[in-house]
Design a protein around this nucleic acid. Structure first.
Length: 362
DNA sequence: AAGTCGGGGTG
DNA sequence: CACCCAGACTT
């Protein structure tokens, strides 16, 4: 056998389960979605948790489940309602796909979840990780998972130094994950791996002295836990400057819904233009987006920045008194500022609305 | 294989 | 500022 530290040998493999599950039973996190093993609840939580930290999901999960307690309720909801309850979580395609999948489950599967990894994979928004998570946690199917936490744990156990974006790096770790997931309690085992990664085997300064797997961790034995796994290459962030327009008539302001192919598809936002400063006024008048809109001199209300993946956007917020409404169009609405809370808005849109509220007394 | 998609908390 | 996160999907 020529295997060395690049993968776990059979002895180390067998050594994982017992100490890991013992650690989990006493150290596991108390999370709202762990109160239920209903596939629907597990599914909703897993979609929310994609690329989103646990602490940011807690409250949204509780609110969402209260509004849509089962797959039929979700399937019958409007996309606006679903998006509004997704507000602030980001990656809104997840919400649209969740909604589409709920309809699919109701129409094609009589409201019952497919009870296999392959069946789950056919639903929009469910990939290899999420299918394995739902299958193992909600259905007691011995399916592997690989995500940010368990990837780090397994990479260190096996001293697998390649960064996640390296070619073939994940394939080896998926193989490892499949080799170690037990037939008994696969869901607990997988969640234990994730909790260990989140609480002990952290990206920086892992707490190896508290780790139940330290004795069989190749990275720890080599003293390389700080450098494993390697960091992926980061793209440079690109800076963007634009203006957001709060066009006002009386107590109403102009908002628009983001369309297909745009960021925040389906969500409402204030109109924005790439022009800033002196060029803004003519840009407003020319903008096919806005009408054209006739309005008085733009007035600076404030500024804010936000980030979308590798873009950093500086927004100058400008208010103006519109003379008349301009064209009517789907996805364009004059909304009383007091009622803007009912719309599913982008996060910067919410902040812009706040500036607008300060501008407009009551 | 590389890009895209949010947002906020942390150091 | 950079880094991080219970990934999926398109090109």
């Amino acid at each position: 056998m020529g295997r060395r530290t690049s993968s776990l040998d059979a002895n180390r493999l067998q050594a994982i389960g017992r100490p890991l599950l013992a650690w989990y039973s006493r150290a596991k996190r108390d999370l709202p979605w762990r109160r239920s093993r209903d596939p629907y609840a597990v599914w909703v939580s897993e979609i929310m948790l994609q690329q989103t930290q646990v602490e940011r999901v807690r409250d949204s999960f509780v609110r969402f489940m209260a509004a849509f307690p089962d797959v039929h309720t979700l399937a019958n909801a409007t996309e606006d309602e679903v998006l509004r309850l997704w507000e602030g979580l980001g990656y809104y395609r997840r919400a649209r796909q969740l909604h589409a999948a709920a309809k699919q489950i109701v129409v094609r599967h009589a409201g019952l979840f497919p009870r296999s990894v392959d069946g789950l994979l056919e639903l929009p928004g469910i990939g290899r990780y999420t299918a394995g998570a739902i299958a193992s946690i909600a259905m007691n199917i011995s399916a592997p998972i690989l995500e940010a936490n368990s990837r780090r744990v397994l990479a260190r156990l096996a001293a697998h130094a390649a960064p996640p974006d390296a070619g073939g790096a994940d394939a080896a770790l998926w193989t490892l994950a499949a080799a170690i997931v037990p037939r008994r309690h696969p869901g607990r085992f997988n969640q234990a791996l994730m909790d260990l990664g989140a609480m002990v085997c952290t990206p920086r300064q892992p707490r190896c002295t508290a780790c139940p797997l330290a004795a069989c961790c190749a990275a720890h034995q080599q003293g390389r836990e700080a450098e494993i796994p390697g960091r992926p290459r980061r793209r440079a962030t690109e800076s963007i400057r634009e203006s957001a327009i709060v066009a006002r008539i009386g107590d109403r302001v102009l908002v628009l819904r983001r369309g297909p192919g745009e960021w925040w598809e389906g969500l409402w936002d204030f109109p924005r233009l790439s022009a800033v400063g002196r060029g803004l006024s003519p840009a407003i008048e020319r903008s096919p987006l806005l009408g054209p809109l006739r309005c008085g001199p733009p007035q600076r209300l404030g500024s804010l920045t936000h980030s979308v993946t590798h873009h950093r956007i500086a927004v100058a917020v400008v208010g103006c008194e519109a003379v008349r409404r301009g064209r009517r169009a789907a996805g364009l609405a004059w909304v009383p500022l007091a009622k803007i809370g009912r719309l599913a808005m982008t996060s910067p849109g919410r902040r812009i609305a706040k500036l607008a509220a300060e501008w407009l007394p009551e």
